[in-house]
Amino acid sequence: MTAEPILTISGLNVDYGTGANGVRALRDIDLTLHRGEVLGLAGESGSGKSTLAYAVTRLLSPPGVITGGDVHYHRPGGGEPVDILSLTPDELRAFRWQELSIVFQGAMNSLNPVHTVHSQLTDVLTAHRPGMRAAERTARAEELLTLVGISADRLAAYPHQLSGGMRQRVMIAMALALEPEIVIMDEPTTALDVVMQRQILRKLVELRERLSFSVVFITHDISLLIEFSDRIAIMYGGRIVEQAGAAEIYRDPRHPYSDGLLHSFPALHGPRRELTGIPGSPPHLSAMPTGCAFHPRCGKAFEPCAERVPALAPPDAGQDREVACWLHH
């Protein structure tokens, strides 16, 4: 992995609705994905993870609207960055899947039940590679299935004839069809059992090493991210509250929310530890607390937490990590 950025997000804000009934779902998001990196995005349901993914890919459904900020894609080899938020519909259609693809939440149910795997894998090739002959598209579809560990003879199968894990891998194959530089995965293993989750993740790591694409992996299960992410960003209440290397987050979480997430799942190795979890529930977007959004649930909250929003900044000079918490500022 190099320090060269491939995707930069600056000051991104997203609202659902407008006027008096509007709520802010993302607040001043600053995030950088580096080339060849796996960036994990963790947080409870409602923290803004999927909204961020759909904002970056311009797939927000109404009444979602981007109200501020910039998203830039940096092509390999340099040149002017691509302003994703300014792309026309035709430019956006060419950009998606070619440069950036997404595996949607509940991906194994995203396949069309009345079309074969062959039809759905070759559809993206037909749209983006009009010069390819039918035989070439079929050969590429067979190659993609083999790439994700599925026999090429399953091309003729319908989705209901595949297991959940196989359908999930077909969706991953579809996302890799045009060899994009960035793949966003929105909780792709949520509906799978833990054995299949590990198989999917091992295959993903293998593919990333072979094809050198960058990954944004979104999940509420931080234990998955620690295993294979390079960096992790923690979201709460529409903000990023901490970001650091995966090993740093595991060994020394600085934000109380990050610490709570880590102590919400059992350790598979080492001494037995008590599961503490996080008291209370995430805030509703229409009734966000003042100051730090986490302070009503935080056992370490003190005077400034309820009054002022802490900035996302390095807790100590020279550190390559950031945390938004008054304990460290």
Rank of each mutant, 00 (worst) to 15 (best):
R96E: 01
P63R: 13
L41K: 06
A55T: 08
M174H: 07
T18H: 14
G164R: 06
S47P: 00
T219S: 14
P180H: 02
P89K: 13
Y236P: 08
Q161V: 08
I66D: 03
M132P: 12
H220T: 11
T2G: 13
L92W: 09
M288A: 01
N109E: 05
I232N: 13
R27W: 11
F213W: 12
G19L: 12
M288R: 09
E44Q: 10
D153R: 06
L261C: 02
I102P: 03
I172H: 06
Y250D: 13
L145E: 04
I240N: 15
L111T: 00
L33R: 00
D90A: 08
P282I: 10
R154H: 12
S86R: 13
P76K: 07
D221K: 03
Q98M: 12
S281G: 13
A152I: 00
G48Q: 02
L31N: 04
A53Y: 02
Q197N: 01
R273E: 15
A42I: 13
H328W: 14
F302C: 14
H115E: 10
E99Q: 14
S86Y: 07
Y16D: 13
H329C: 07
E142F: 04
L275R: 12
T88M: 11
I249C: 02
T32K: 05
V117P: 07
A287G: 05
L12T: 09
S47G: 10
E136N: 05
R140Y: 05
D153T: 06
R210F: 02
